[in-house]
Design a binder for these strands. Structure first.
Length: 429
RNA sequence: GGAGAGGUAGCCUAAUUGGUAAGGCAGUAGUCUUGAAAACUACCGCGGGAAACCGCUUGCAGGUUCGAGUCCUGUCCUCUCCGCCA
């Protein structure tokens, strides 16, 4: 959520920023009048309220003093205010709701150093690590490799659940589990994150807080339960919301969480995209990094978080590059996003394996997550950050494809071997 | 699923037949002190405002009333017992 005061004072630059995100700016056409109306009605309702409060207090005093007739006279006087008050409160609620509807649908404003462009073609590569391996045989993709090895069964998954589901088995399942444990260990032991295991089902307030609602309901799996539950699309949702409607002590910041969870996405609208293999699934596993921090530290924390995610790929010796997303390619809640893309030999290209975003105070404002500096200062909104560290399924793909051998077997990266009970290679049984 | 108890500011605890949230601890600033402690003073839920001040706040949402922590309805959460259960 944008700060209404900021929007009021910077309407033109907000309009330009939204346009850079390909966001229709028509909604802002009514901002000024809506804002003025809201503030006018609010102060008027306040004034009437004040009048009534005073009268009620006087009645109370008269009753205490035993002056019944005077109290009755005062009551009759106050009764006339009631209709006007009800009307004003109704107007105020409507104006507030209209403003909230307007603001809650607007995406975050891009940071100043985000490249401006229409879509992913304007993303800018900022660094590259490792060198893609030279293969002296024809590479296979992860579907052929893993299916042949008997560690992946997509056909039966389609029978059990449907398209975009998978069954991992044997060393395939073990590799997934090894990756999860490896990532959690690195982030907790070396990077100082606190491991958490959040609910996989969340309510609507939580979804609003991180920005999934009201605009992206169709991306979620929502339960038929009347409580409005949805399956989480990412651990960012429950974890960032841990401190919703709280005022934190500044001395406790930054808070750094790492959470391993399954994630569930409807993938509505992505029909025909990445239909083969594990790239795009309705259910996948992810280790997620989340930070709540001071505003002045979020840029640095963002760099650190991205480096923490990259470290996993370095330890697994998987080549990758990091790109900064352009204004036209960023997510709703982000003010700046780095995508980390891992090398996939079968596609001869880099594919997203992590997305690390600084959301500034955008989510904090929706959640009501604030902090207070020492000395009893006014509460301020925290900054929130999140990033995959990493998408486990896609890491699994990267390991399978990058470590494939001519005979179709897979060499286990050194860093993972302790997590595989010393297994060094997955070969056909 | 059945029965019962409860939710007041960071924590603890009050509030008469409904009269407009009292107090303690912790915390912050200051006085005093070589320094600290103690004592004393102020602040000490949220929002707006330069300020004066105003509005909001007893889990949440409604209702009755001039006025609701208090009465009524719904709902969420916590706890206890019974049943069921990984």
């Amino acid at each position: 959520m944008l700060d209404p005061n900021y929007v009021r004072e910077n309407l033109d630059s907000v309009r330009a920023a939204l346009a850079a995100r390909n966001f229709p700016t028509a909604a802002l056409d009514h901002f000024a009048e809506l804002d003025a109306e809201r503030r006018r009605v609010n102060s008027e309702a306040d004034a009437v309220n004040h009048e009534r409060n005073n009268a009620s207090k006087e009645i109370g005093a008269l009753m205490q003093a035993g002056k019944k007739t005077e109290a009755e006279a005062k009551k009759a006087e106050v009764a006339g205010l009631k209709g006007r008050q009800t009307e004003l409160e109704k107007q105020r609620d409507e104006a507030d709701a209209a403003m909230r509807d307007l603001l809650s649908g607007l995406p975050n404003l891009p940071a100043e150093d985000v490249p401006v462009g229409p879509d992913e073609s304007a993303n800018v590569e900022i660094r590259r690590w490792g060198t893609p391996r030279e293969f002296d045989f024809e590479v296979k993709d992860h579907v052929d490799l893993a299916t042949d090895l008997g560690i992946l069964d997509l056909e039966r998954a389609a029978k059990v659940a449907g398209a975009r589901f998978a069954i991992l088995s044997g060393f395939g399942a073990k590799l997934e589990r090894a990756l999860v444990n490896f990532m959690l260990d690195v982030h907790t032991r070396d990077h100082g994150y606190k491991e958490t295991l959040p609910p996989l089902i969340v309510n609507r307030d939580t979804l609003f807080g991180t920005g999934q609602l009201p605009k992206f309901e169709e991306d979620l799996f929502t339960l038929t339960d009347e409580r409005g539950f949805s399956l989480i699309p990412t651990a960012e949702v429950p974890v960032t919301n841990y401190h919703r409607d709280e005022i934190l002590d500044a001395s406790g910041l930054p808070l750094k969480f790492v959470a391993y969870t399954p994630c569930f996405r409807s993938e509505a609208g992505s029909y025909g995209r990445d239909t083969r293999g594990l790239i795009r699934q309705h259910q996948f596993e992810k280790v997620e990094l989340v930070k709540l921090c001071l505003p002045e530290e979020s840029d640095r924390e963002h760099e650190d978080l991205t480096a923490n995610a990259e470290k996993i790929l370095q330890l697994l010796e998987l080549p990758y590059r990091t790109v900064v997303l352009s204004t036209g390619d960023m997510g709703f809640s982000a003010r700046k996003t780095y995508d980390i893309e891992v090398w996939l030999p079968s596609q001869n290209t880099f594919r997203e394996i992590s997305s690390c975003s600084n959301c500034g105070d955008f989510q904090a404002r929706r959640m009501g997550t604030r902090f207070r500096r020492a000395g009893g200062a006014k509460p301020e909104y925290v900054h929130t950050l999140n990033g995959s560290g990493l998408a486990v399924g896609r890491t699994w793909i990267a390991v399978i494809e990058n470590y494939q051998q001519a005979d179709g077997s897979i060499v286990i990266p050194d860093a993972l071997r302790p997590y595989m009970n010393g297994v060094e290679q997955i070969a056909k049984a």
